[in-house]
Structure formats: C-alpha cells, structure tokens
Simulated assay, not measured.
Amino acid sequence: MSTTADLVLSLKKELKAAGLTYADLAGRLGMAESSVKRMLARGDMPLSRVDAICRALQLDFAELARRVADAQPLMTELTQEQERAVVADKKLLLVAISVLSLWTLEQITGTYRLSEPECIRYLVQLDRIGIIELRPLNRYRLKLAKTFRWRPHGPVMNYFRDHVVLDYFNGGFDGAAEGLLLVHGSVSRAIAPSFVERMQRLAQDFAQQHQADQKLPDAAREGYTLVMAMRSWEFDAFKRLRRPASGTR
C-alpha cells in the first residue's frame, strides 16, 4: 500500500506540472506560504490535508492514488511465502498463470470451469499476495516486472518440476507450430549468462557461437546445454478445468 510520503511526493510533481508555486497553493488552501513549504518538506500530513490539496489542484484523489501505485517499483521475484501461497491451491495457481498472461476475468471464466464469484475471490487473493493490484470492475494491474521470474528453487518451480515437466515433454513436438531443438556447444563462461536472456533467438545463434569459441583455450570454455521447446500444450490438471466445447456434453 502506498504511504503518505509517496502521496506527498506525487502531489509535488502535480504542483510542478500545473505550473503552480507554493504561494499559489497556499492561497487556495488559505494557509501561509511558509506553512505549505514546511508541510510539503516534511512529507507527512493527514489524508484530510492531502484531499484538500487535491481539491485545490482539481485532482481526483483516486486518480492520485492510482498514479502513486503505478509509480511503485515492480517486483522481479516473489518471496518463498508468496510462492507457497500461490501453489497451495491449484485453481489459484491457474488464475495466477492467467494474470501473468494478462487475461481478463471474462477470458478466465470463459475458458475454465470457474464461476465469476470464484474467480474474483482468487483475484482478491492474488491482490493480497501482492501479484496484482485489483481495481474497480475487476480489472487489475500486474505488479510484476518484465524481468520477473519464479524463484529457481522456490515452491512454484519445485511444483512444476514435480507435476508439470514430464507432462510437457511427453509431447511429440511434431504438430503444427511445434518444435524441440537440442543444441550443445562450448562457449566461454563470460558469454554464457547472456544466452539466458536470449533464449528466444534461433538455436543457430548458439551453434554459431559454439563454432566461434573453438579458437579459445579449453580453460576458457565450458560445456553448456541449451534446451528450447515449443508445442501446443496445457497442463493436464488445468485442462480438466476447461468448460466443455459448445455442442458437446
């Protein structure tokens, strides 16, 4: 939740954007300019005063709070406790994966056997956990950065290792828009981490680097195996929650 200090900082930005001075604001509030300066400098004031300043700036308090929330730093990783809460309920995990894909409430309930009240309850849980900020009309803001990842050895990844990996790789990867490529090569230890960020690139990039690094001494190279996979797939436990297709029983 945003602090009063965050709200005050945002108010200062709004004051500057409106081209108003402390004297202008003081006049609208019926206060001395020195009192306004001192109040904003401390960054601490009752919400009633914040609301009065919003009125003076003709700014909706809800909009100010929304801007403050949007300015908060996004999370790149959850805590162990947050991840444990996500995997504690299979349906909650399903909704969490759905919001990571920015699905709407309507898309989730239209695809899976979840009622609207049930799905809203899970969205509220994700809000409490800290993954989303739930907004009016059941819309939400994802509070995770683009660089977000599940903890490498956390509850979510452990759950997927135990229940999902074999299900995923059990596919033939031979359907339309599917493929499984396995390329092995030796590249320098210095460049290896960059491949983690470039996994979406063609596998040939890795193979070409393997060839280019052959001129390096053995001590400067390390054997790495990069697995890239894509297939039309959905976790079987999620699939069982899908609504029947139209016209079927």
Score class of each variant (00 low, 15 high):
Ala88Ile: 11
Thr79Arg: 00
Gln72Asn: 08
Leu74Arg: 12
Ser115Pro: 02
Leu105His: 04
Glu77Ser: 11
Leu105Phe: 00
Ala88Thr: 08
Val95Ala: 10
Thr104Pro: 10
Pro73Gly: 05
Lys90Pro: 02
Val99Glu: 10
Leu94Ile: 07
Ile97Cys: 12
Thr109Met: 07
Glu83Tyr: 02
Glu77Pro: 00
Tyr112Trp: 13
Leu94Met: 15
Asp89Lys: 02
Arg113His: 07
Leu78Phe: 10
Leu78Ala: 01
Ala88Trp: 01
Thr104Ser: 15
Ile108Val: 14
Thr109Cys: 12
Gln80Tyr: 14
Ser115Ile: 00
Ala88Gly: 06
Ser98Tyr: 02
Leu93Arg: 13
Ile108His: 07
Thr104Lys: 14
Ala88Met: 02
Pro73Glu: 10
Gln107Val: 13
Gly110Val: 11
Val86Pro: 06
Thr111Pro: 01
Glu83Ala: 06
Ala69Leu: 13
Leu94His: 07
Leu94Ala: 10
Ile108Cys: 11
Ser101Cys: 13
Leu78Asn: 07
Asp70Arg: 08
Val87His: 09
Gln82Phe: 02
Asp89Pro: 04
Gln82Ile: 09
Leu105Ala: 01
Asp70Thr: 00
Ala96His: 06
Thr104Phe: 08
Ser98Val: 07
Arg84Val: 04
Ala85Asp: 07
Pro117Cys: 10
Thr104Ile: 00
Leu94Phe: 12
Leu94Lys: 11
Lys90Gln: 11
Glu81Phe: 05
Gln82Asp: 01
Leu102Ala: 12
Glu81Pro: 00
